[in-house]
Design a binder for these strands. Structure first.
Length: 860
RNA sequence: GGGCGGUUAGCUCAGUGGUAGAGCGCUUGCCUUACAAGCAAGAGGCCAGAGGUUCGAAACCUCUACCGCCCA
């Protein structure tokens, strides 16, 4: 084994796991079941750091559950990402000067499939590289025939139940993507903008009414002015008519409750075609709807002389003309939230059009109930409230997209009789009623529609397959809180409606990965981290370490830093070298039998191992993965490597060798969910030809719990640290061995003297009945170690050392005294706490009296 | 406007009512034959502020300030 750990074998193991179907699951009624579906990543995408965290966590759980005897099934797959994928292919076609319309729908879709077949495996390879133990034989793509079938079935089912409908409503339109998008796909950003105050003259030309707007270009589509019915200023104008500046359209002043009297002048313009609130006002007052902005973001013919202008150019032009013609009262700076397309950041245009909707308003109560009743447990539970609030304010979901790549809406209209129906069949040519020709809807479904069926469609739904019955509902879902609404909630809607069952029993929502200063990563900030670069530079284990060790129980965001991943790399090197040492030492030993004799030091590390096992299991069971990892790491590095391995070098016995090896093996098992590669590699170096993930999780060994040994060792460590500290302070060369005299019960120390000699570089420890002249001293409890040094002992230095220790002790004791002299404390605190405090004070007091004695010997 | 997080060492963060921990960074000394990707020893904190509950608060409650996120 090399002195430095080389992670290049990671490639070997990830390939082996896949080739040997290590993570393949089959139905097995004799084992407890654990099933989970991967949040399917975008097939056009590559792994980003957020995926890496999400996948590392899932993999850790999968390995942990598998080692605990579960029949684990983790289903992998990718998402067809309608708009994103279409964009990518459109862009590449455009390089050849081809528009998708030029080649038509079918040819275009062929191109997309070609593209997918060529590049769509990238992210799957990356998942493999990260070490993920997914069931590759169950790999799914959301456009697979089985998923397409599921989508059609789900659609028809919901359509027939009246839970999907087509409607003429205001939706969010992205002019760049050329499609409707859902409310969730709009992100609002605060922007510095303006409020333009525009004069609308009354039709009799006697005065005008001033309205404030952030969007002057939409005035071309104004069909009313609205004021609040209770606004005294405007009582007299309600019912009157004004003329829209620049175009002269005659529009009424209406009274509507929705108008905020405190906004602007208290009077607002109403453009039903281009604003959701105005749309509602328009419906209430039966106003005309004039669309002045087209689907391409340019002004329509209805905009008169502005027709053809981009909406933002039109804004400038309109403002310009208003100013010229003296319709502009004033301009104020104004900060407000502007909706952008989540995908391309284009400013979203509210637009009225015919779209398909899922009636979430009808489905929300059940989705709410299953969480309320605990049928689904959301962890951390603070998300429950967020989820419930969202359900309380739910709006129907616009699912139609004006693109080609995706699941085409399975609704047909008979060209003869006009019958409209949804079908589950892949192709429908004739009307089931009259046999006439039918025409299918052109639009495709929101990608999230198929994603919402993911946890059951991957098991063959709607067929009631054996897999579906066995693996569904899934046990756990792990994903980031950022897709709670996008995905998690929608799966609940779909499953509770279509299956009358929850899609998963538990959801763990983790935080997002931020940069090292807690900033969101973004390309424009230039602070993104490519996980594959990190893997290349540091190893997948190190990356997994950096991500998971940064997690805390509350599901906080994880700050990613290179220093953390570097530490992960150091940890793997530490594991490597400690294993290298141990394996070398035990190489020729037959350690098959458990030893009959164990030293205190052996019992100490075995007992600490038991404590660690307990904590780690508790952490896993409470989804505290970061703490689990930190706990094992600290046990392995601080207890096992820094103390036990070092101590094992002193007069090793069979028990020592056995313990060295035992703790190594058990530690490897506990580390395996987090660092699968190095642990597997070392496991094989031990000589095992098994996969570590198929080994059994370390079982508790109550007989190894030995608090006395742990307590003894803590004192021994204090002695060693004390002597080391003394050496360091006095600049004693590491190579120089020193003599030590113990004032105290040598017998009680005898077992540990060899360790003290080795670790504190002590030549000899002998006993002394009384204080030693000309020596430094280390007080450990009631005992004193004297260290006479050749040459002159600096009495003043020794005194000041001891005085500092004395005042530290006195300070600590005074805190205890304050507490123990307080009658309220003595009466009200639990007895065992009082006892413990007394004991602790007593121990400090004993050390103090030794110090005082020592100081008086020095004449201080 | 409504809601949710956060504020602890220079930086990034853990912390379960009983006078605070880690990693990185810093100082000092060590290539001590597992590991310099390491070892040892150290320095460094009125736990954001103010009230309250409690025998006792970094932790529980209330308010304030600031930072961040989500929703409208």
């Amino acid at each position: 084994m090399d002195a430095q750990y080389d992670p290049s074998h990671e490639l070997y193991w990830s390939k082996k796991w896949k080739e040997d179907h290590v993570f393949h699951s089959e139905i097995d009624e004799n084992k407890p079941r654990f099933s989970m579906v991967i949040p399917p990543p975008n097939v056009t995408g590559s792994l980003h750091i957020g995926h890496a965290l999400d996948l590392s966590l899932q993999d850790a759980v999968v390995r942990y559950k598998k080692m605990n005897g579960f029949n684990v099934c983790w289903v992998p797959g990718t998402d067809h990402a309608g708009i994103a994928t279409q964009n990518v292919v459109e862009r590449s076609l455009l390089k050849e000067g081809i528009k998708r319309q030029d080649i038509g729908r079918e040819a275009f879709l062929d191109k997309v499939w070609e593209w997918k077949d060529k590049y769509g495996n990238k992210i799957l390879d990356q998942i493999t590289r990260l070490g993920c133990g997914v069931d590759w034989e169950r790999l799914r793509f959301t456009m697979d025939p089985v998923c397409a079938r599921a989508v059609r079935h789900a659609f028809k089912e919901l359509f027939d139940q009246g839970l999907i409908y087509k409607g003429h409503y205001m939706i969010n339109w992205c002019p760049r993507c050329g499609t409707a998008i859902s409310d969730l796909e709009v992100t609002y950003e605060e922007e510095d903008a303006h409020l333009w105050y525009i004069r609308y003259p009354f039709e009799d030309q006697k005065g005008f009414i001033v309205v404030a707007t952030t969007r002057p270009e939409t005035m071309l589509g104004d069909t009313a002015i609205a004021v609040n019915p209770n606004d005294e200023h405007y009582q007299s104008v309600i019912g009157k008519f004004v003329l829209v500046p620049l175009i002269g359209r005659r529009i009424p002043v209406v009274a509507d409750e929705s108008v905020d009297p405190d906004f602007g002048t208290g009077a607002v313009k109403v453009t039903p075609a281009h604003d959701p609130t105005d749309f509602a006002v328009g419906q209430r007052h039966d106003l005309e709807v004039i669309q002045v902005i087209g689907l391409d973001g340019r002004m329509t013919d209805a905009a008169g002389k502005y027709a053809g202008l981009d909406r933002f150019d039109a804004r400038e032009a309109v403002v310009n003309d208003l100013e010229k013609q003296d319709y502009l009262e004033k301009i104020e700076p104004y900060r407000h939230a502007v909706g952008h397309c989540q995908r391309c950041n284009t400013v979203v245009e509210p637009m009225i059009s015919d779209q398909w909707f899922v009636k979430l308003t009808a489905m929300a109560p059940e989705a709410k109930r299953v969480v309320e009743d605990g049928e689904i447990q959301i962890v951390p539970d603070r998300w429950v409230k967020v989820y419930q609030d969202w359900m309380d304010n739910i709006r129907d979901w616009c699912i139609s997209r004006q693109i080609w790549w995706g699941h085409r809406i399975p609704v047909y209209t008979c060209q003869e009789c006009g019958y409209v129906f949804a079908s589950e069949e892949e192709h429908v040519d004739t009307c089931p009623k009259c046999g006439g020709p039918v025409k299918q809807e052109e639009d495709v479904l929101d990608t999230w529609f198929s994603s919402s069926l993911w946890p059951f469609e991957v098991f063959g739904w709607p067929e009631q397959t054996a897999d579906l019955k066995y693996y569904f509902p899934t046990t756990l879902l792990i994903t980031g809180y950022d897709i709670l609404f996008f995905w998690v909630a929608r799966m609940v809607f779909m499953s509770t409606t279509l299956n009358k069952q929850v899609p998963f029993k538990q959801v763990f929502l983790h935080g997002l990965v931020l940069d090292e200063h807690g900033q969101k990563m973004s390309k424009s900030k230039g602070n993104t981290v490519d996980p594959m670069d990190m893997i290349d530079e540091y190893s997948a284990d190190a990356l997994r370490y950096a991500l998971i060790s940064g997690m805390s129980l509350g599901g906080q965001d994880v700050n990613f830093s290179e220093s953390r991943i570097e530490h992960g790399k150091n940890l793997t090197n530490k594991i490597w070298n400690s294993a290298r040492y141990v394996l070398n030492v035990v190489a020729d030993k037959d350690l098959s039998k458990e030893p009959e004799q164990l030293s205190s030091v052996d019992r100490y590390i075995l007992s600490r191992l038991e404590e660690t096992k307990n904590v780690v299991v508790q952490c896993f069971d409470s989804y505290d993965f970061g703490a689990a990892l930190r706990e094992i790491e600290s046990f392995y590095w601080a207890d096992y490597c820094d103390w036990y391995i070092e101590m094992s070098k002193v007069e090793p016995t069979y028990g020592t060798y056995w313990t060295l090896r035992h703790v190594l093996e058990e530690s490897l098992k506990m580390l395996h969910p987090f660092l699968p590669f190095i642990t597997q590699e070392v496991w094989s170096r031990i000589g095992f030809d098994s996969y570590l993930v198929n080994e059994t999780w370390p079982a508790p060994r109550k007989d190894f719990v030995d608090s006395v040994a742990v307590e003894r060792l803590s004192v021994v460590k204090d002695a060693i640290r004390g002597i080391r500290n003394l050496r360091a302070e006095l600049n004693v060369k590491p190579s120089q061995r020193i003599r030590v005299l113990l004032q105290g019960d040598l017998d009680s120390w005898s077992e540990f003297i060899p360790y003290i000699k080795f670790l504190a570089r002590v030549e000899e420890v002998s006993q002394t009945a009384s204080a030693v002249e000309n020596a430094y001293s280390v007080v450990v409890g009631t005992d004193v170690f004297y260290v006479p040094l050749q040459g002159i002992v600096d009495i003043e230095k020794e005194k000041s050392r001891l005085l500092k220790q004395k005042s530290d002790l006195e300070n600590r004791i005074s805190v205890y005294d304050k507490r123990l002299q307080n009658n309220d404390f003595l009466n009200k605190a639990p007895k065992e706490v009082v006892e413990k405090q007394k004991e602790e004070r007593q121990a400090l007091e004993e050390s103090l009296s030794q110090l005082v004695k020592r100081l008086s010997e020095l004449g201080g």
